[in-house]
C-alpha cells in the first residue's frame, strides 16, 4: 500500500513539476531562437568565397537533461507494446535545441558577424546506474553540438 502511494506521488511530481519545467524551457528556447535567428548555422563545410574570414574557432554547446519519473513510467509502458515513445521525443528535442543555442552563444562571443559551418550534433545517454551495478530508473540524455565558427570581417 505504502509502495503504491509513493509511486503515485512520484508520478504526480514528475507530471506536474517536470511538465512545468518543460513548458518554461520551451518558452525560453523559443525566445532565444528568435533572438539569435541572425546567427547562421550551416551543416556544410564549404566556405563562401565572398566571406572575409577574420578568425575561426571551434565552438561547442553541451546540454544534459534528466528524464522525470512520469516520462520514464510512460516510456516503460511503451516498452511493452512498442511504438513511438512520445514522452522522450520532447526531451531529446529540448536537449538538441538547447545545445545548439549554447553553441550559438559561444559563437556570438567572438563578436561581429559570425557564421558557424560544419555543425554536428551527437547524443548519448547517461544511464541511471546504481552503485551496485543494477540499472536505476532515472536516466539523462546528453546532447553536444559543435561546429567551426567563422568571424567575418
Amino acid at each position: 500500500m505504502a509502495d503504491i502511494i509513493v509511486f503515485i506521488v512520484l508520478v504526480a511530481c514528475g507530471y506536474f513539476i517536470g511538465g512545468h519545467r518543460e513548458r518554461s524551457h520551451y518558452r525560453s528556447i523559443f525566445a532565444r531562437e528568435a533572438a539569435t535567428l541572425e546567427l547562421t548555422l550551416l551543416s556544410g563545410k564549404a566556405i563562401d568565397p565572398a566571406w572575409q574570414v577574420a578568425q575561426a574557432a571551434l565552438v561547442t554547446g553541451v546540454c544534459v537533461i534528466s528524464v522525470d519519473y512520469f516520462k520514464s513510467v510512460a516510456a516503460g509502458l511503451r516498452n511493452l507494446v512498442g511504438g513511438r515513445v512520445s514522452a522522450y521525443e520532447s526531451l531529446i528535442d529540448r536537449a538538441r535545441r538547447e545545445a545548439l543555442l549554447r553553441m550559438k552563444a559561444q559563437a556570438a562571443a567572438l563578436g561581429g558577424k559570425v557564421v558557424v559551418i560544419n555543425v554536428r550534433l551527437e547524443t548519448s545517454s547517461i544511464s541511471g546506474m546504481k552503485a551496485d551495478g543494477r540499472s536505476g530508473q532515472v536516466a539523462s540524455v546528453e546532447v553536444i553540438a559543435y561546429g567551426t565558427a567563422l568571424a567575418l570581417a
Partner: peptide, 19 residues
C-alpha cells in the same frame, strides 16, 4: 514535427488501460 503533439496524460492512460 519532431515532437508528437499528443497530451502526455492521454498517452499514459491509453497505455495503462491497454496493459
Amino acid at each position: 514535427i519532431n515532437v508528437h503533439p499528443t497530451h502526455p496524460l492521454t498517452e499514459l492512460l491509453y497505455l495503462l488501460g491497454g496493459v
